[in-house]
Design a protein around this nucleic acid. Structure first.
Lengths: 193, 193
DNA sequence: CGATCAATGATAACAGTGTCAACATAAGTC
DNA sequence: GACTTATGTTGACACTGTTATCATTGATCG
């Protein structure tokens, strides 16, 4: 009997199962015992692959962040340039958040914690940097570097806040409304009174 | 000896202690045993005043939401009308969030949960409605009702998202930068291409 | 005033959690 | 083939929210 003591690649299997739950359930069961049980393994076996539960959640959050970044990069490539394209990229962020609520929440819950891990402490920061670059890349041209920074930050804040308000049930999700808000917010600030 | 079996007003004392921790600590200890110990009372005594821990946290979140709404109302009254006043109200939201990070997180974690309580199920919703009204009240005049709705939503999303990004360590807090972003985002959308 | 009852508190226990120490088994290496 | 390393298991510990049961106080009413 081959399927016995040693699993083969328990770490990958754990992350895959956790990812499935994060994508399919609103409040996923991420307890160590529950995960281990469904993996056909003992709870403490996970400690051979993750130093503790936080590290497991961090790994899941990092994977989610990578997927989000990929999603934004694809949207940016598909939507073309200009203001319309930039707005579509922003709206895509909201769409993705609505489709993966638990995952987005996990990302923004885990990031910015005190212990960011040991092996690669800048993993999260790097992934976020990619996300930032993705947003900036789709931005209309002809802006000063300073204006680009402000515009990036404003766009990110807007879509992130809108997504959070929708996830928290404060605002109903309506793709058309999202696109309307995002589109009318993409402005090239020329002068400030 | 007077200070004995009965506390007097344990419910208020519990909420006050919880509030103090939420305002003074970044990751406050809100465990039932920890709270009860510092209140000089047994853990299970809290169950005479709250059906469970979630209800306690909901009560704290509601109190925090009321304080936030009060803060916004004051800022709106103080900042006068016009775009500049409206922008100042938005910036005040971010300031408050930076000053009370744990409290803001609790509010947006607790709201939109499945069981919103029994005695007054619309308490949270009502408080949020007040917040929404406070934002809308400070808005520049001369907009159609539909534009007002969109503008309110955009302003709320922007400041909430910006606050969250600052709280999560993705963006450094700089009051001047916050006001710059908010100010340049207050626009009266006349036409959409 | 004194008896009764509801409100509020304490104790002990239960199931569940993350985590660790000690032991068991498989895979890899010289 | 023996030894070492990687991986998985069992049992236990401290901790959590929660409940059942009992104790004490304050209030109500004849």
């Amino acid at each position: 009997m081959n399927a016995s003591y040693h699993h083969g690649d328990l770490r990958s299997a754990t992350l895959q199962l956790g990812m499935e739950r994060l994508e399919s359930q609103e409040q996923p069961e991420l307890g160590l015992r529950a995960l281990a049980r469904d993996l056909g393994v003992s709870a403490t076996a996970l400690y051979r692959h993750f130093p503790n539960k936080d590290a497991l959640l961090d790994a899941l959050a990092l994977e989610g962040l990578n997927r989000l970044g990929r999603n934004q990069a694809e949207a940016g490539a598909a939507a073309g340039g200009g203001r319309a394209g930039f707005a579509e990229v922003g709206a895509t962020y909201v769409d993705w958040a609505v489709e993966h609520p638990a995952l987005l929440r996990l990302i923004y819950t885990r990031v910015g914690k005190v212990d960011v891990d040991i092996d690669d402490p800048s993993a999260m920061g790097e992934a976020f940097h990619q996300l930032r670059k993705g947003i900036a890349a789709a931005m209309p041209e002809g802006l000063t570097p300073e204006d680009r920074t402000v515009a990036t930050l404003r766009a990110w804040s807007l879509v992130h806040g809108l997504a959070m308000l929708i996830l928290d049930g404060q605002v109903d999700y309506d793709p058309a409304m999202v696109r309307n808000i995002v589109r009318t917010s993409v402005v090239t600030p020329a002068k400030a009174p």
